Amino acid sequence: MTTATGQKRRFDWTRAVVGGATIVAVLVIAALWQRTHPYSIETSVDIDASPREVWAALTDLEAYPEWNPSVGGIRGDLAEGGTVVYQEDGSDVTGRVVEVVENEELRWETHAGVIGVFDGERTFTLEELADGRTRFTQSELFRGVTVLFVTDTLHDEVAPSFHAMNDALRDRVEGDE
C-alpha cells in the first residue's frame, strides 16, 4: 500500500494481532455468557394416564413415526452416556443422553458442530399429579454464540413443535389417535 506522500506503507502486525485477539475475546465472552444465560422454551400437557404409561410411550423409539409429528424417526440407546439420533426438520440430530430416571425424566444434549456455537439440552419430565394423571413437560435450553441471533426463530418454530409432540403423546397414551 502507498501513502499520500508516495511512501510504501508496511503491514501493521501489532494491529492485526490486537484486532484478532479482540475478536476471539469477544466470541469467548459471548460463549461464556450464553452458557450461564441460556434461551429456554418449555411446554406442558396433562395426560390422563400414569407416569409409567407415559414413559412407556415416550421411550418406545420404534413407534415415534406412528404418532410423533415433530420427530420423523429416532434410534439409539436411552441410557446415560448413550447416543440418540433423531430426524427433525429433515436433518439428523445426534444427542448424548445425560440423564435417565425411569418414569420421571429423560435428558440429552446436542451440539451443532463445535461446542459453544449452538447447543441444546432437551428435557422430558413426567410429574405425577394428585388425581393419578401425569404432567408431561418438554423443555430445551439453548446455548452458544449464535443463539442470540436466532431466538425469534427458535420461539416461532420450536415451541409449536413441542406443543404438537405433547398433544400427540397425550393422544397416543390416552388412546385418542
Results as ranks from 00 to 15, higher is better:
residue 148 L to W: 05
residue 106 L to T: 01
residue 165 M to H: 04
residue 128 E to N: 10
residue 113 G to K: 08
residue 24 V to A: 07
residue 32 L to W: 10
residue 6 G to Y: 02
residue 46 D to I: 15
residue 176 D to E: 12
residue 91 S to H: 11
residue 165 M to V: 03
residue 8 K to F: 07
residue 37 H to C: 03
residue 72 G to F: 05
residue 63 A to G: 09
residue 132 G to P: 07
residue 23 I to F: 01
residue 157 E to R: 11
residue 97 V to D: 01
residue 159 A to N: 08
residue 73 G to C: 06
residue 1 M to R: 12
residue 12 D to C: 05
residue 65 P to I: 14
residue 35 R to N: 11
residue 53 E to F: 06
residue 34 Q to I: 04
residue 17 V to N: 01
residue 165 M to C: 05
residue 66 E to F: 01
residue 48 D to E: 14
residue 52 R to E: 15
residue 158 V to Y: 09
residue 9 R to Y: 03
residue 22 T to Q: 07
residue 65 P to M: 11
residue 64 Y to Q: 08
residue 149 F to R: 07
residue 31 A to I: 15
residue 85 V to Q: 11
residue 38 P to E: 08
residue 131 D to H: 06
residue 172 R to T: 04
residue 158 V to Q: 13
residue 19 G to T: 00
residue 68 N to I: 11
residue 141 L to Y: 14
residue 75 R to T: 15
residue 129 L to W: 02
residue 128 E to L: 09
residue 107 R to E: 15
residue 91 S to I: 06
residue 32 L to S: 05
residue 74 I to Y: 12
residue 57 A to C: 01
residue 155 H to R: 15
residue 41 I to Y: 03
residue 23 I to Y: 00
residue 25 A to K: 01
residue 90 G to P: 06
residue 156 D to A: 11
residue 18 V to E: 01
residue 12 D to W: 00
residue 31 A to E: 10
residue 60 D to L: 07
residue 8 K to S: 04
residue 106 L to V: 06
residue 153 T to D: 14
residue 95 G to S: 09
residue 97 V to Q: 13
residue 152 D to C: 01
residue 71 V to M: 10
residue 119 D to T: 00
residue 4 A to P: 14
residue 105 E to T: 15
residue 159 A to Y: 01
residue 39 Y to M: 03
residue 159 A to Q: 15
residue 146 T to G: 09
residue 168 A to C: 07
residue 33 W to E: 05
residue 154 L to M: 10
residue 13 W to T: 00
residue 20 G to P: 00
residue 108 W to S: 03
residue 148 L to S: 12
residue 50 S to A: 14
residue 153 T to P: 03
residue 33 W to H: 08
residue 79 A to L: 12
residue 107 R to T: 15
residue 96 R to M: 08
residue 118 F to D: 13
residue 145 V to G: 10
residue 145 V to D: 04
residue 34 Q to M: 07
residue 138 Q to M: 09
residue 88 E to N: 11
residue 174 E to A: 05
residue 111 H to A: 14
residue 53 E to C: 05
residue 12 D to A: 02
